[in-house]
């Protein structure tokens, strides 16, 4: 029953997204234009460290923008009706899952756009599969944190401003981990060298999901 509800919810969110295309297209446009502005001032970056840091900063801001909207529609009557019917734990898990899918898509998209506009000679010996793993794991921890914090921030009037104030300090450590991890992948590291990062990032992901699962019902109850 729980799982069934969960998938219903995720499907519902996806359907909603497909219907109102303006949201997704606006966030894609945001990513492309940000990267384009960066490419105008950089064109090519010799130092892979800077390339990497710039990439993660763009990811951080685009994900913040994308996920800040996840609890915005909540006030409309239809949504309220839906949410009174289902368990809040299903709701937060559904939101997190949906945002995971969304953020992995956005991150992969921004990687290809970023790589298209801003070249770096240092990327020759990149371990591509490991880099993808770093990007996916990192963006997962960022998006699940942002989902929970946006639920908190939705209770205030100034949603987006509060969201970044609340979320960024909590995000710094997992962002640091992801940056180090993807740096290792860029410099041709192997999976064995990155075990530490993989374990820590997965643990953090798990912990964030468990915490949201436990805490969200308190937020939801009026």
């Amino acid at each position: 029953m729980f799982i069934k509800n969960l998938f219903h919810l995720v499907r519902h969110e996806l359907k909603l997204e497909m219907k109102q295309k303006h949201f997704l297209s606006s966030i894609v446009l945001y990513i492309v234009s940000t990267i384009f502005v960066c490419s105008l001032s950089f064109t090519s970056i010799e130092d892979t460290k800077i390339w990497n840091a710039l990439f993660w900063i763009i990811i951080l801001f685009s994900l913040t923008n994308a996920i800040s909207k996840s609890f915005l529609n909540e006030n409309s009557d239809k949504q309220l009706f839906l949410y009174t019917l289902i368990n809040p734990r299903v709701l937060i898990l559904g939101k997190i899952l949906y945002n995971l899918v969304l953020s992995v898509f956005l991150v992969l998209l921004s990687f290809f756009v970023f790589n298209f506009f801003i070249q770096s000679d240092g990327l020759k010996d990149i371990n591509f599969s490991l880099f993808l793993l770093a990007v996916v794991l990192g963006s997962m921890s960022i998006s699940s944190t942002l989902t929970m914090v946006s639920a908190i921030a939705s209770k205030t009037n100034n949603n987006i401003g509060i969201l970044s104030i609340l979320a960024f300090p909590i995000l710094i450590p997992s962002l640091l981990l992801s940056i180090q991890f993807s740096n290792l992948a860029i410099n041709g590291g192997t999976a064995e060298m990155a075990t530490q990062f993989i374990v820590f990032l997965s643990l953090i992901n798990l912990l964030i999901i468990i915490l949201s699962f436990l805490l969200f019902p308190y937020l939801w109850r009026e």
Binding site: T145, M148, I170, L215
Partner: peptide, 24 residues
């Protein structure tokens, strides 16, 4: 209510990071 939720969420993550980051 809201700040208690944030407090618990942030504190647990902070403790984990304080344990993890110095090892890296």
């Amino acid at each position: 209510k809201v700040s208690a939720v944030y407090n618990i969420f942030a504190f647990v993550l902070m403790i984990v990071f304080i344990m993890i980051l110095p090892r890296l």
